[in-house]
Design a protein around this nucleic acid. Structure first.
Lengths: 181, 181
DNA sequence: GTCTATATCGTGATAGAC
DNA sequence: GTCTATCACGATATAGAC
């Protein structure tokens, strides 16, 4: 059974926005890859920003959920570990990592987009929850990098002999190590 | 003595490109901040790309120099440590960190720009020189993140009570720790 | 749902006067 | 070195037929 057009637009847009950048990608390009005209896109999405919003939705809810959860937990090594594990788990879901990469690569272009702003704020709060204000600065910094380390594995170049799972496992190891002094 | 116009253009462009993104920043905006018309910019820079090139120049030579040096050294813990220290030292120079941030934030928009391509390749080689192919994956990943950790300190949010130097010192601590198993 | 046609705008860039 | 005036282009977005 064939995907619906809306989903195909999302997929094409996600790829092009990430590869070339949001502003550098025109609706004409997306339409051409889809095999329709520019105007047809406007039936499925009201504006170009709307496409971004639909992509952000794939991720925002999940991060905010994780944030809500962590707020109910004590600030302990176990909680931090669990946050990293849950975040890593989320990254395995289809398209999640791709959306994360799209956002990361287009932060400036999208810095005023409401959904992106919410996303950034949630991530900052999440990072904040992972340290006490009186922890040493280097430790706090390391923990801030922890979640990012999980993304980094996918973006760093490595040989083809290494499998996805191995990279994810190694990233997780780095991330967990960054939690501790 | 007043800065020359060329330098002022670079400064304004660097700030706007970083804050809003390269594509989102028009020459009109830069000209307005400078207090001249768009056309006047073209006396100082032949194209918009030329402004980027002049900004990249502030950093490319330095990284390539560091790369050349590391290639003459054995792959040892001391060499890796020295690379991180030298890179951290370079980041203290005026505008270097700002240029790094500008590049980082606009990687996609500038992905075909010759100077940016050279820069990325040099950084990748530099990272490569910091590990042996048979080191464990997690260690190689951590070392890849090491230089990035030095950037990260500046971007992560932290209280105003913390000084620049303290942040840099903490970043350095994280970076050095990432070098070791 | 998709089309053609068009409106409207801002962009990077150039020519030539001063 | 800076200006005015202008160009050519491609962008997002809309109207209305099919």
């Amino acid at each position: 059974m064939r995907e619906d057009t809306r989903t195909r637009i999302q997929e094409i847009a996600l790829r092009l926005f990430t590869e070339q950048g949001y502003e550098a990608t025109s609706l004409r390009e997306i339409a051409e890859e889809l095999g329709v005209t520019k105007a047809a896109l406007y039936y499925h999405f009201k504006t170009k920003d709307d496409i971004v919003a639909s992509l952000a939705d794939l991720r925002v809810a999940e991060v905010e959920e994780l944030l809500e959860w962590v707020k109910t937990q004590p600030r302990s090594p176990e909680t931090r570990r669990e946050v990293v594990l849950r975040y890593a788990e989320a990254l395995r879901r289809p398209r999640y990592m791709e959306v994360a990469r799209f956002m990361e690569r287009n932060q400036t272009a999208l810095r005023d987009h409401p959904k992106i702003v919410r996303m950034r704020e949630a991530m900052l709060e999440l990072v904040k929850e992972m340290s006490d204000p009186d922890d040493p600065l280097a430790l706090r910094l390391g923990r801030s990098m922890s979640l990012f380390a999980l993304h980094a594995g996918k973006w760093m170049p490595h040989e083809e002999s290494v499998s996805e799972d191995e990279v994810m496992e190694a990233s997780l190891e780095v991330a967990l190590r960054l939690l501790e002094p």
